[in-house]
Write a protein that binds this DNA or RNA. Sequence first.
RNA 1: GUGGCCGUAGCUCAUCAGGUAGAGCACCGGAUUGUGACUCCGGAGGUGGCGGGUUCGAGACCCGUCGGCCACCCCA
Length: 436
Amino acid sequence: MSNIRAIRGMSDILPDETPTWQYVEAVVRELVASYGYAEIRLPIVEQTDLFKRSIGEVTDIVEKEMYTFNDRNDDSLTLRPEGTAGCVRAAIQNGLLTTPRRLWYAGPMFRYERPQKGRQRQFHQVGVEAFGVSTPDMDAEMILLSARLWQQLGVADGVQLQLNSIGSLSARAAYRQALVEYLQQRREELDEDSQRRLDSNPLRILDSKNPQTQALLDEAPVLSAYLDQESRDDFARVRELLDAAGVAYVENPRLVRGLDYYNKTVFEWVTDRLGAQGTVCAGGRYDGLVEQLGGKSVPAIGFAMGIERLVLLLQASAQEPKPEPTADLYIVSAGEGAQREALAVCEQLRDAFPGLRIVQHTGGGSFKSQFKKADKSGARLALVWGDDEVASGTVTLKALRDESGKQAGQQTVALEQLQQTLRALLADWDIARGSS
RNA sequence: GUGGCCGUAGCUCAUCAGGUAGAGCACCGGAUUGUGACUCCGGAGGUGGCGGGUUCGAGACCCGUCGGCCACCCCA
């Protein structure tokens, strides 16, 4: 019988990587807070209909990528494939749609896709949503917030902002008709996927990667020509605000989104450092979704980022946080009496030095092997208890690392002196750290 | 869902007309009896992803399957 393995596309995030994850999460958390966004925590499972009605029945996500199952009550449930739908549902249900409402969330999402770099079946997103403001200043705020993230993560030189307006529902419908008419004439020249989408989701043909299809589109009607006046004006204002704030962007008239609920401003941050899955953040306006899901008519805008991709981007850009040792103090003790005393004293130390990472040697072994562990732990200092120390009421402090590379020293002090001695050593280290 | 490449110790990899596996790193122990990092010595660890087939004999060849990577697709 073979071992049980993780589900395909659902990977473990190992201790080597969690520091980078925590770093990204911490930066995001502080950033959204600094713009006044409040965290909301949402269920991972929702009624299947929620996603069908929001993302769109004919999208790839709903058609073939959702983890859908019936529960014991025979209700159809789905592991969320994205966060916006659940956030909107929660905002409606809990009366959060007073204006304006700024929310963010993070957590796992599930899509049944073929795994590859930057794409997994369980992946993690941070989502940022703002309800109740229809004016383009909110669009600009969203984009500025995301732009600041790249600055703070040190990857601003690796990402590019692409911007478009897909207009109102009716403008899009008119354009859609014109595009289909044009492409129908040339159906034979389209690639297979695009032919299929001609009937189901023709706007998605715009971002086809097929060169021949892209060439065909050069002569095709353009979306911008079909935009309603309000969308035009708002889009112009968004660009004006971005210009004023010094955020560079590229207008991409073929930028469309794969989820049906978007309108007006849409944007994507893309990078060339991640291979085929280069979209690292994407979003846009979805003014009709709240009403469509049964709420009042409330405009909204939001975006989502894939944390795996952010982590990959940091790695590709050599911007990962430096690995920190997991210990400051390592406690070496030999003999039952020594260990008893060490354990008790360490609890006192934890009271006296909150935040200090004190690792107790467990599992016995010789001094030699214990010191090997102490060294591996990365601790700066070992506290040593042996028979001699217990007999004389002392403890030995041995420095394992020295910033200056000097020979490490060792001293034995009375137990009553331990906290005082430690305090002095820690103060020295802080100074050394501050100056380095 | 489609295609290409790949799957040997914890990790990175090697070996060989096909004759039941090795290195480096990591791990454990030792080098005068209470002290790490360097060095030296020794040790443990693999039903060669899994299941079939060909063969006297397969990790090496064939098929299937699972998994990984990359691309298509999709999208964060």
